[in-house]
């Protein structure tokens, strides 16, 4: 009896979370007049909504732009995060602790305060309407440094000493010895950065105006708000589904890593 109640409740929960997505998938194959109906399956299947999306916005370009930006940012955040995290944890230099406090402090400053000056900086560098304008400001993050630092602190000093005796450079130690030992944190940083960056929309809205350079979420958001979709609900949903697809596929393949990484983001406090 108790079990039945438990499963009913769990299945109801699953229904609440999954049904909107299922409804969205089928709705993208419905003619617009049908979308308001309560039944799930289309009476008349159509590709029209997808056709309208591809006709109106270069969404494949948006995908490519997002991929370029997100890949470079993820790579850069991981590498520089590790290097800096290493410097903060295993090297001794003057001002290290002060610098580390400063980087903790930057995490406490809300982005609202730096948003407009950073935009102006990007304008001055001539990086508006340029993918670099999306990449450069987020190439290194304090959060990734913090995660790497915490993880690197647990590595035994003997290992490093041995490597130094063998004549390894500091970068050599970091990437040949420490990196392979720190896979979990590398995966965590990479996934968090990737998902966060892929879904970012406020900053691209500010920096990119030229359609051919827009990221995918930006393009889809503007398609839905602006007149581009001819107020076709089906096309708006289709564009949203296309936007969701890459991350959802990655999630379904690497779900254990996703869940663990994103949950660990909550443990910093």
């Amino acid at each position: 009896m108790k079990k039945t109640l438990l499963y009913t409740s769990l299945i109801f929960g699953a229904f609440i979370f999954a049904y909107p997505f299922i409804w969205m998938i089928f709705s993208t194959f419905k003619p617009n007049a049908e979308i308001g109906n309560i039944q799930l399956l289309p009476e008349m299947w159509t590709w029209q909504n997808y056709k309208l999306v591809f006709d109106r916005i270069p969404i494949e370009k948006g995908f490519l732009n997002s991929l370029i930006v997100t890949s470079i940012v993820t790579l850069s955040v991981t590498i520089f995060g590790a290097i800096t995290g290493y410097a903060f944890s295993r090297l001794h230099w003057k001002g290290r602790d002060a610098m580390f406090s400063l980087s903790l402090f930057t995490m406490m400053i809300p982005f609202q305060i730096t948003l407009i000056p950073t935009y102006i900086l990007i304008v001055k560098f001539g990086l508006t309407d340029n993918l670099a304008g999306l990449i450069v400001p987020t190439m290194i993050t304090a959060f990734s440094i913090l995660l790497f630092r915490q993880s690197f602190l647990t590595i035994p000093q003997d290992l490093l000493d041995a490597a130094r005796l063998d004549g390894c450079s500091e970068l050599g130690i970091l990437f040949r010895i420490i990196f392979p030992l720190s896979k979990p944190v590398v995966v965590t940083v990479a996934i968090l950065t990737f998902v966060g960056n892929w879904n970012e929309v406020l900053w691209p809205l500010i920096v990119i105006r030229e359609e051919a350079l827009m990221t995918m979420p930006q393009m889809v958001a503007l398609f839905a708000v602006g007149g581009g979709s001819d107020s076709s609900v089906g096309a708006q949903l289709a564009s949203a589904l296309l936007l969701a697809l890459p991350v959802v596929i990655a999630y379904l393949i690497f779900q254990k890593h996703f869940i663990k990484s994103m949950a660990s983001s909550g443990l910093k406090s």
């Binding site: 109106r56 916005i57 001539g126 508006t128 105006r209 359609e211 503007l222 398609f223 602006g226 581009g228």
Partner: peptide, 22 residues
Amino acid sequence: LQALPAGQSSEEVLLSAMVAGT
């Protein structure tokens, strides 16, 4: 030829182009 990006007002686009010299 280039179309102004849809969905955003042309004014915003032109103003920022003017700022950026493009």
